[in-house]
Design a protein around this nucleic acid. Sequence first.
DNA 1: CAGGGTATTGGGAGCGCTCCCAAAAGAGGT
DNA 2: ACCTCTTTTGGGAGCGCTCCCAATACCCTG
Lengths: 345, 345
Amino acid sequence: MAAARVRSGGRPTLEEVAARAGVGRGTASRVINGSPRVSDATREAVEAAVAELGYVPNRAARALAGNRTDAIALVVPEPETRFFAEPYFSAIVRGVGAALADTEMQLLLTLVGNDRERRRLAQYLTAHRVDGVLLVAVHADDPLPELLEQLGMPCVISGARHAAETLPSVDSDNFEGARAAVEHLVARGRRRVATITGRLEVYGAQRRLDGYRAAVAAAGLAPDERLIAPADFTEEGGAAAMRDLLARRPDLDAVFVASDVMAAGARQVLREADRRIPGDVALVGFDDSVVARHMHPALTSVRQPIEEMGRRMAQLLLDEIAGRTPGDERPSVVLPTELVVRDSS
Amino acid sequence: MAAARVRSGGRPTLEEVAARAGVGRGTASRVINGSPRVSDATREAVEAAVAELGYVPNRAARALAGNRTDAIALVVPEPETRFFAEPYFSAIVRGVGAALADTEMQLLLTLVGNDRERRRLAQYLTAHRVDGVLLVAVHADDPLPELLEQLGMPCVISGARHAAETLPSVDSDNFEGARAAVEHLVARGRRRVATITGRLEVYGAQRRLDGYRAAVAAAGLAPDERLIAPADFTEEGGAAAMRDLLARRPDLDAVFVASDVMAAGARQVLREADRRIPGDVALVGFDDSVVARHMHPALTSVRQPIEEMGRRMAQLLLDEIAGRTPGDERPSVVLPTELVVRDSS
DNA sequence: CAGGGTATTGGGAGCGCTCCCAAAAGAGGT
DNA sequence: ACCTCTTTTGGGAGCGCTCCCAATACCCTG
C-alpha cells in the first residue's frame, strides 16, 4: 500500500468545471480568479459548477503557469534561542497565521540553523520558490536581507536593524516602552534606577537603553554610567550584570531590565543578596513573558503586542507582493507597548 | 563566497542543463533524481552542468508532473492554548525541522482556529496539496484523522488518542513518567501523595493518572480517591483542584501535578494556605517547562523529549510517504521521560 | 441600418518537469 | 560475424493552469 503517489482520483480540473458550466476554460479561469470581465450570468454558472464538482484549483499548475507560488516563508534563525525559549515565536506565528487566514497564501516555516541550511535557504530563495519572506530576528550583519533585495524578493523584517533601516519592518516601540517603565519606577519614588541592557548591537536593545536615559534625564535624576550594566539577553548574563550593579552602586533602589529572562537572573542574585522586592529594590522587565507572571513576586513588565506584530508583518508583505506598496516609501510600523504593573515595583 | 551569478530573468531549466551536458532531457532528469540507470560518465557530465549553471529544479513543475508536492503540513489546532503557552510548540517545530533539514520536503504550517479554517483545511487536504500531515494535539473526537485515513493521506499524530490507537503516533511515556515521579515522592518519605490530573478525556492525562495509581499501589500506600483531583491543564484549574485537595485531605504531604502550569496554580494556593514547599508539601510537575525552572522553589518536573518527538514524527511520516512502512503495522513510538529533580520535592 | 466602439468569450501556446516507450548502444554467447 | 539480451538514452506526451490574442457578441452613435 504505497500510498505515496496517490493518483488524484478524479479531482476535477478547470476544464471539467468549464465544460459543466458550458463555458470555455479561459472564462472559467476568469471567474475563479475574480476577474471583472465576466458577465453575471456566466459567473453564476461557473460558480455553480465549482460548487457541484467541489473544484479546488491545483496549486502546482497555478504556480507553474503563473510564475508565482502563493506561499511566503517565515525564516527563523534557529540558534537565536531567545526566540524559542519564549512564546514570542508562537505569538508571531499566530499573528501571521491570522493575517493569512483568508488568503490563498501558504505559510512555509524555515528554520535556519547552521551554515549549510543557510546556503540551502539562499538557493531556495534564488530559485524563487516563495513570493515573499518574513525575516524574524535578523542581525545587523546578516547578509540575507541584501540577498533578498538583490533578488527583488519582497521581504519584511521584525525589528529595525538600525536607525536607518531600509527594509520594511515592524517593531514595537522599544524606546517608549523603556521610558514608560523607568518613569513608572520614578513615580513610585525610586531615585537610583539602574538598568540591565540587552546586547547593544541589537538595535532594539539600544533603543531601550535610550528610553531609560531619556526617562532618567526627564526625571531630573543624576545620570550615572555605573547604573548601566550591559548584558546579553540570557539569564546568566542578567545575573552577572546584577552582581556588577550591586558591587558598583549598592544603594540602587530599582532596576529596569531589558528582558524578563534577564530579570529572572537578576532576581536570583537579589534574592541571594537579601534584597527584598519591591521593598529594597523595585524590578521591571521587558516582554511580559510567562516567566514574568510566574516569578515571585510577579514581575512588572513591558508588554509588546507580538501577535499584532506578526499580523502586521504579514499584511505588509502581502501588500508588497501585490505591488501595493506606495512608491519608494519603505513602510515601517512601530507598535505601542504597554506597561503591565505587578508586584515587583 | 556566495558570488553566485544572479541572473534575474532566466533561471536555468532542466533542458538547458541537458543541453550543456550534451545529453537529453530525460537523462538529465534521471541524474537529478538519482536514478541508477545512468552511466557514470553521463552522471558526471550532468552534475558538472548543474553546478556550472547553478540549476535548481522548479518545484511547481515537479509537483505538477509528478503529482506530489514535496511538502508536509504541520497542523496545529490553535485554540489549544496549551500548545502555545509553552515552548512545546517551538520544540516540536525544531524537531520536525531537524528531521526535514536534509530532505527536499517543505514544512507547511497550518493553524486551525475556528470551524471555517477547519473546513478550509479539509478542502486543502482533499485537494492533495501536501504529501502528508503531522497532527499535533488531536482530540479523541476530532474527525480529521478519519478524513485523512479516507483520503489515504499519510499522517502521524502526537500522542495516542486512546489505548487502541490506529494511527501512527509518537508519544512520551506518560505512565512511566508519572509513576517515576510518585515513586520519587515516596522515596523522599511522603506517604499521603495527592495528584491533580489533566482533562481525563485526553489519553495522556489518563495515563499519568494510571501511573500515579500504579506507584501508589506499588508503595503499599492506601489508595484514596480524595487524593485525586481532576483539573483541566490550566493554572486556574490547578489552583481550584489544590483547594479541593486541601479541603478533603488537609494532611496531604505531596502532590504530583500533571502539568507545570497547573502546578503553578497549585503552588499559589499552597502559598496562601501557608504550606511550605517542600517542607510541608512536596510538589512535582510534568513537562519541565520554563515556569518549572522559574518557580520558587524551582519545581521538580517530568521532562518529555519534545524535540525528539518532533523528529520522530517527521521520520515516521517520511517513511509512510515513501511507502517504507512495513505492512499493516501501525508504527507507534513511545519515548522515555526523565525526572528533573529540583527544590520542590 | 451601417459603423465604430466595447464588453465577453474561446482556446492556443506554453510554464518546466516526470513518465514511459521505443531506439540506440553495449555485452555476451555461439 | 550474427543474434539476443541488457543497459542507457532521447524525446513525445502530458500534468492543470494562466496569459493573451483573436473572434464573437453587444451597444451606442448618427
